[in-house]
């Protein structure tokens, strides 16, 4: 991964995303191979490696004995930082935590706890920030605020690693993506070229008859009575398909349009899909 990059680590559950991150963070020792953060080996040069790295863990962990400010001060101290209140205030401000600064961690909502986790990962201004599924169980408002803040950090020169289940998130933010499967990299490419090869729409139709008119663009993936799944390449094709249905006098009872989901991308990548 290059310096300053916004990098996506994608994969289904159990693909090894979190394990990989834990190796980089020094929480798991690799059976083989090595990892380095900004050139610092995570084993031999662990102090430098960990100072370079800020990790937002996936689980909502917190210490119920302390307030938000205490938590952030303690975290600064673990990195050897003495007077860090200026930066702590700034981070709390950007994450909308200022009003909760003196609230006990126990009393915070899930979304607020997630923000504190982000703040904790930033107390030492690490050049590399890892977000492990940061939006799992987080409401829309926080999600947007979070992305705004992370994008700003990336503009300011921080390298970002994001793991996620959601293709849209990776698509929206990441410059490059690695797809993990069973602990191996199944694909690694710039986001645009990677997703370009999987672009398209999944059109699901419930018609008033059990036959599709001829001339419908795309490829029929599934046909079950009056239910059809058609794979289209573009929205233009979607328009054409609807026009074709109208011309043939076929009525639509239900219709859904989906972008390709990650599972499907994986199935295709590993050559087991249709």
């Amino acid at each position: 991964m290059a310096e300053g990059e916004f990098f996506g680590l994608l994969g289904p559950n159990g693909a090894g995303k979190t394990t990989l991150i834990n190796v980089i963070a020094g929480l798991v020792r690799p059976d083989a191979g090595r990892a380095a953060v900004m050139g610092a080996d995570v084993g031999r040069d662990y102090r430098r490696a960990r100072r370079m790295l800020g990790v937002v863990p996936q689980e909502l962990v917190f210490d119920p004995f302390f307030t938000v400010r205490e938590t952030l001060r303690l975290q600064s101290g673990y990195y050897g930082l003495a007077r860090n209140d200026g930066w702590i205030d700034e981070v709390m401000h950007h994450l909308d935590l200022t009003a909760k600064a003196d609230a006990n961690m126990r009393s915070l909502s899930g979304g607020m706890k997630r923000r504190v986790l982000v703040a904790q990962a930033l107390v030492h201004k690490p050049p590399v920030i890892v977000l492990d599924e940061p939006t799992a169980g987080v409401d829309v408002e926080l999600r947007q605020g979070l992305w705004q803040f992370v994008r700003r950090l990336n503009r300011d020169g921080h390298s970002i690693v994001l793991t996620t289940h959601y293709l849209e998130e990776a698509e929206a933010h990441c410059q490059r993506i690695a797809l993990l499967k069973d602990g191996r990299i199944a694909a690694l490419d710039a986001t645009r070229s990677l997703l370009g090869s999987f672009s398209g729409l999944d059109l699901r139709l419930h018609l008033d008859r059990a036959a599709l008119p001829v001339g419908i663009p795309g490829r029929v993936v599934e046909a079950d009575g009056a239910h059809f799944r058609v794979r289209l390449a573009t929205y233009r094709e979607l328009e054409d398909a609807l026009v074709r249905l109208r011309e043939a006098g076929v009525g639509i009872r239900e219709m859904e349009v989906h972008p390709p989901d990650l599972e499907e991308v994986f199935l295709r990548l590993t050559g087991r899909g249709s």
Partner: peptide
């Protein structure tokens, strides 16, 4: 799980 905060730090 909050031991992770110490384990992540140098």
């Amino acid at each position: 799980g909050n031991i992770v905060f110490v384990l992540l730090a140098p």
